[in-house]
Design a binder for these strands. Structure first.
Lengths: 368, 368
DNA sequence: CGAGGAACAATGTACGTACAAGTTAAAACA
DNA sequence: TGTTTTAACTTGTACGTACATTGTTCCTCG
């Protein structure tokens, strides 16, 4: 079953129409010949696509009359509680995500709920698939960590469709501004500011910032970084910011080596997260420089990794498991119609700087 | 659906072959081209006929190989497929488990299945709850990592109940000997042996082994450790083995400090896994000793942690993600009535030693 | 004797055509 | 105006072709 085969594409497009609500149950879809014209494929291919959807229960055909959208989604609207909560994250097994998921699972299972997992690998197409899966399952609620939150999201209609089906959902880590759903996020701008301020107060002036640009966490942390420079009236210098995306991460990180090899070396570095900080640490080692002797490094998220290395990383806290618990608590409250003690549906966590061994006060200068 | 249409006739003829027993479950039927010749119809018609039988569950097709009689009709359960697979693990977010789960999720989602997660925290009571939850949900199959596999399991009846409901399940990492289900495991005995042999061949004699005793992985690795001592005819010495359980892990690990403080220090250490190895590494650092200078350490599982520290750990490989993929592949094959190419339902992975920087050849002695 | 590659065989995708059969609605007729 | 016929449109069956992709088998080469 090739993903890019034509009939699969046609199938997915038609399914989209249904899931997005463009075609409602009982309504007739385009005739086969019409679809042939629209997609520019043969009738055989169209029939193949429709055939699959008929077998999956999305459509039914009537000889001589047309092809119609079945009403299986409607049946699910008045469904009984399944005690299943969907969870969609960008990554499932890496970094701090396991901790978040643990929090979710902990609370859910204590309340007799189960968790259905899916991950997007930070790919919007995959996010769409995940949403489709969740919509076609019998879930009571959905917790989403947005994919590529810094760019416009093409899957909004799916989220809106969730609302039409009265399935509560909330977003963690970030949220799509366009829909403004309940969300649990960290004040990343402040986190970035705290990290940078820390180095500035330690007397550092040439501080490089490395940030991920395809999610809002990265963009916000960068904002905080720049704010700190402004507040302390420090001069900006060339190459002070390195940004990367999921796709070009490896190369961009590798480029940092050259920044450290030059003679006018930076003395501090603010990293998007602990993972990046560790990569930098490895580069520093390979150049026979020391941390924090030659370079002070600040990570972010206070992950396992921060304390796994010999040089324990100074990092910015992330609620992780607690965030998971809070998310689960709120989604269940919504499902069961409880009103939360706190009036608002969302939480903004305050970040805290955790100073460890990877940052050092520069001897020459002290700023207060 | 005309009764006299050709593809219906072809369909019925093939179905007859199955019902009459001319084709038995798992056997290959005539190829499409062969059927074209026999029935004197076009390939399109043959494919149409087979397509119906595939959808009805009588046959399944394998690209490049042929069309086979399914054995799903033997189970003849009328429960409809929910496309949900349950996964029960001891831990969900720690260590190598995320990698395993990622493998499972990867394959499941590619096949249109979803995954329902639950974890036991290595507690048998919680395992019981998880099994109850899974049984009450509509799952098509179950992947289990056993809890406390070294002791007798009180939840056997739940597993037997799964069989009665014709819900296929398999176990990963370890399996309960009492039920002997399909399982995907590593040859831990050999892994423990390889790790120990490595240090022995590097000239080490006083090698301490630290093992977890409440799962079979630990017990088997210890067995391999002892076997290596026997094979190389090395003398046993007091305190050479430290065992711990989930409950007393912290204290037992802490006790290792005293072993390293004595004057007759061991020169090598075999650790249950990389996590323990890192704990030991921290103790070694706090005593101002060096790895591998003063102590050679071997971890297990080749986890992220093995390469996160400054001293990259020598470790024993664990298939992790691949194991997850294999598990998912097998459970789906079972559900869909495919018989696997490989006659046996289980896999035993061969462990491999990955030598990094945490082990050193002792200068004085070389054994070949 | 094992590894690797070539040839072959099986299913998968995709295009085309033609006509059959059921439904609908406009057109024709009484 | 009410009924019937017909044309147009829908899905269903059936044929053909070509090439892609995957798995197996066997043979060659080192």
């Amino acid at each position: 079953m090739k993903e890019n085969s034509k009939y699969i594409q046609v199938k997915n497009q038609i399914k989209d129409w249904i899931l997005e609500g463009k075609v409602k149950p009982g309504e007739k879809i385009y005739s086969e010949n019409e679809l042939v014209k629209r997609f520019g494929v043969s009738r055989h291919t169209v029939r193949q696509a429709i055939g699959v959807l008929v077998h999956e229960g999305w459509l039914y055909r009537e000889h001589g009359s047309g092809t119609f959208c079945s009403n299986r989604l409607l049946q699910q609207t008045k469904r009984e509680s399944s005690k299943n909560i969907g969870v969609i994250t960008t990554y499932m097994s890496d970094y701090i995500f396991p901790s978040i998921i643990r929090g979710i699972e902990q609370y859910l299972s204590s309340q007799g709920y189960s968790l259905i997992m899916a991950s997007t690998n930070n790919d919007l197409e995959k996010e769409k698939q995940c949403l489709q899966t969740m919509l076609s399952k019998n879930i009571d609620g959905l917790i989403v960590e947005p994919t590529k939150s810094s760019s416009a999201n093409p899957n909004i209609s799916y989220y809106l469709n969730l609302e039409q089906h009265h399935i509560p959902y909330l977003m963690i880590n970030q949220y799509y501004k366009e829909i403004n759903p309940p969300h649990l996020v960290i004040d990343d701008e402040k986190g970035g500011f705290l990290a940078t301020e820390h180095l500035i107060q330690y007397g550092h002036k040439k501080i490089i910032g490395i940030f991920k640009s395809d999610d809002l966490q990265g963009v916000n942390r960068m904002k905080g970084y720049i704010d700190a420079f402004r507040k302390y009236n420090l001069p900006f210098f060339p190459d002070m910011i390195v940004t990367y995306t999921t796709e070009n991460k490896e190369e961009k990180i590798a480029e940092i080596r050259s920044l450290l090899e030059g003679k006018d070396r930076p003395t501090g570095m603010i990293c998007y997260n602990d993972e990046v900080a560790l990569s930098v640490l490895n580069i520093v080692r390979s150049l026979y420089l020391s941390v924090p002797g030659d370079l002070s490094i600040v990570g972010y998220d206070d992950s396992q990794l921060a304390t796994a290395s010999e040089v324990k990383l100074t990092s910015v806290s992330h609620p992780k498991t607690q965030m998971g618990i809070d998310a689960a608590k709120r989604i269940i409250a919504k499902i069961e119609g409880k009103s939360l003690e706190n009036g608002t549906d969302s939480i903004v966590y305050e970040p805290q700087l955790i100073v460890r061994e990877s940052t050092k006060r520069l001897a020459s200068k002290i700023i207060t």
